[in-house]
Design a protein around this nucleic acid. Structure first.
Lengths: 274, 274
DNA sequence: ACACGGATTTCACACAGGTGAATGCGCGGA
DNA sequence: TCCGCGCATTCACCTGTGTGAAATCCGTGT
């Protein structure tokens, strides 16, 4: 049941009933693994595309001496590299962060669906390009932002991505990762991540308890993060994402209300050099 | 004359005469700009794909307060985002670093060629995926490596990429960027880039004079960089890249010889956590 | 209820890399 | 040949983040 994926893709294209049915069909072979297991290892020859159904995973790479960088987070609805087949072998690993359920989609199944459903093709393109944009933003994040800004930025991104697949509730969302993992993702140490989170807490920027993140004042957090959601390329083709997207959770619970806007800032100009 | 692009793509697929001709046809509208000019600005609606013919450019993003991160370098033969059309607007800018000649390829021209030439489609896929892999490696580089390792890694990457398009000569290649630009790319300050380069020089790792980089002992540089070329996904489909690729420069000059190997290391294993 | 173990928190201290500014070099233009 | 200017280089000093280790906390299983 790739509900999350469908929900996410509909931010970009309107899918027909047939499109959705076709997407449903992709999640045949479902696998489950515990936390902290590898799904694909660097050097492996990828055989299928993985679709995250439940739980979190990450893409990571480890240097010869053990230092590890988490390159991206995968949350439900995320597709790991729809097009890896072109390359011979993986240049990074993908591992679970929490217990995980995911679908292994065979290459042919994916090709079959995209052949017959141009809207899905377009939507997967969008997903691919957004993934690339996120990767670029991470480069900026790690390269230029201070620890505080960096953590804030990461949390903004994760919150929005989760909200897009219906996993937020009001200003809260799950954050089922350890501080060590946040450290590996931001290029900081776990000690400093801790300091930084404390600082954010005492500034009232976040509430973080029992793996749940709450953002009392989104505008404030965005501000310290220098966050601009444009790179996520939401609001497209009619599926206009309201600042405060109505949350129809699958189980029908009522979402908390949030007056704060997650603005998609106007285009900055900025001349190069001078 | 997209010779560089063709040469690069042939590292992955064997192109027929017809394929090459089709690629030639893409570079109709050629533009030239001086150094430090923007080609595309963040927020723009991209109208064509740009193919770098001569000179260097970069993708960059600037924070509200002026900090700038160079997200990737473009060298001759590089294609800027073959698939941007799917998205509505640019989330970053592309600017020249040196005087630049580039071809503006209209969307339709590209689509026409890929429709009729499946090998080109495959090759462009490869190019796209390698670009993504490079982006991921930059995340690792900035997130985990020390200044020295980081600079070394960047130089290794640039050298290999230039060699792939026939722009190296023996162990040397052009490096027409300022230390400030290297700083923006590595997330360091120009002062510290200077220190780092000095250190590399006095360790005999590099020779860098008048915008020309020479790597006396590639193995040594790779070692301090913890560099593993796997992520560039060379050596594919028969087009076996020898460790010391024969350099048939277009102008027929004889390349310097280099016994040193730019090894494509065997698959590391590495269990997650333990 | 208890005990275990991973996760968080705190501490004292070290250092890589940042800051701001001054100096000097090299190269293109007239 | 000289000038001017951007770039590289150097300096003295500072600080954000890393290090290593110890001390708690907390959730989970028994």
């Amino acid at each position: 049941m790739p509900q999350r994926l469908i929900r996410k893709l509909e931010h970009f294209v309107r899918l027909s009933g047939g499109d959705k049915l076709a997407l449903q069909g992709l999640a045949q072979k479902v696998r489950a693994v515990g936390a902290h297991e590898d799904i694909i290892r660097e050097g492996d020859n990828p055989l299928h595309v993985n679709l995250i159904l439940e739980g979190w995973a990450c893409r990571y790479k480890q240097l010869a001496d053990g230092r590890r960088q988490i390159i991206s987070f995968f949350v439900p609805g995320d597709l790991c590299d729809p097009h890896v087949f072109v390359l011979r072998q993986m240049d990074h690993s993908i591992g679970s962060l929490t217990p995980l359920r995911f679908a292994q989609i065979p290459r042919e199944a994916l090709l079959g669906v995209t052949d017959r459903h141009p809207r899905i093709t377009r939507a997967l393109w969008w997903e691919t390009l957004v993934t690339a944009a996120v990767q670029r933003e991470w480069t900026v994040n790690i390269g230029q932002r201070s620890a505080l800004e960096r953590m804030a930025h990461l949390l903004c991104e994760l919150f929005i991505r989760l909200r897009c697949v219906g996993l937020s509730e009001g200003n809260s969302c799950p954050l089922p990762v350890t501080q060590t993992e946040l450290a590996d993702a931001t290029g900081l140490t776990s000690v400093h991540v801790n300091r930084t989170l404390q600082e954010m807490r005492s500034a009232g920027l976040i509430v973080l308890r029992s793996k749940t993140l709450t953002i009392p004042d989104p505008a404030a957090l965005q501000k310290v993060a220098l966050f601009d959601a444009d790179y996520l390329h939401l609001e497209h083709e009619g599926a206009h994402l309201d600042a405060n997207e109505p949350e129809e959770l699958p189980n029908g619970s009522t979402p908390g209300t949030s007056g704060a806007a997650w603005t998609h800032g106007g285009g900055g100009s900025g001349t190069q050099h001078g």
